[in-house]
Design a protein around this nucleic acid. Sequence first.
DNA 1: TACGCTTATGAGCATTTACTCATATACTAT
DNA 2: ATAGTATATGAGTAAATGCTCATAAGCGTA
Lengths: 115, 115
Amino acid sequence: MVDIFKALAEESRLRILSLLLEGELCVCEIEACLRMTQSNASRHLAALKKCGILESYKNAQWTYYKMNDAFIQQNKGLWEHLKDRLKVLPSYLLDCEEYRKCKAQGLCRQNKKPH
Amino acid sequence: MVDIFKALAEESRLRILSLLLEGELCVCEIEACLRMTQSNASRHLAALKKCGILESYKNAQWTYYKMNDAFIQQNKGLWEHLKDRLKVLPSYLLDCEEYRKCKAQGLCRQNKKPH
DNA sequence: TACGCTTATGAGCATTTACTCATATACTAT
DNA sequence: ATAGTATATGAGTAAATGCTCATAAGCGTA
């Protein structure tokens, strides 16, 4: 229990989760949307995965992270809280705007294969 | 949001909250039940109060802390989570046992006035 | 094979956090 | 008033955490 709260007790990690409410993203997309270094993005994602909040899979050179279904099933109250509150983070609208720009500009390799 | 998670990201503070599920307690009761120093108990309680999870009032020389009703009202999902999970903390049964001992032995002054 | 892109991680450093010890304040009862 | 109890908090220290820079490993394409 305390491990989950430790993972949630960091603003950058909450911003990551707010983006992942909409679906999965790879590390470089998160890095771009949140304007953080590759190193930081990777480490924060690893921390969220380690405590079970996120899961990941690899496709080609990309690692995709998304909410862990088991976490959602096993933490319904907390998940309701997160779904509501992550969307009212002060940074949320700006981060979403960056996400749209990234998608429009085709960041990461432009010709990713579907998966 | 992050301030609340920071406050919850500490095992001693979760144990304090688990005791306060049942009702209010003064600092020296928490200190005794959780076998922590007076200084630590006071500081952890102050941290939980500062972010709005707890509220407190004074009566004679005692300060009583309890869950903040406004927090419960405004964080229903998180509160459901806490109510469930605090009771399955590894330390919970032992801490409750200490609480019963404290009450039986009349710790704090034995002749507290009702309030 | 060689190169570029993506990701993970080691090392060093700065900041934050939690702890202990000491002390100050406030209240009660004698 | 004086002593005892309860609480809060300053100072110093040790541990944990997050950041940057550098590097290594994996994968795809030319």
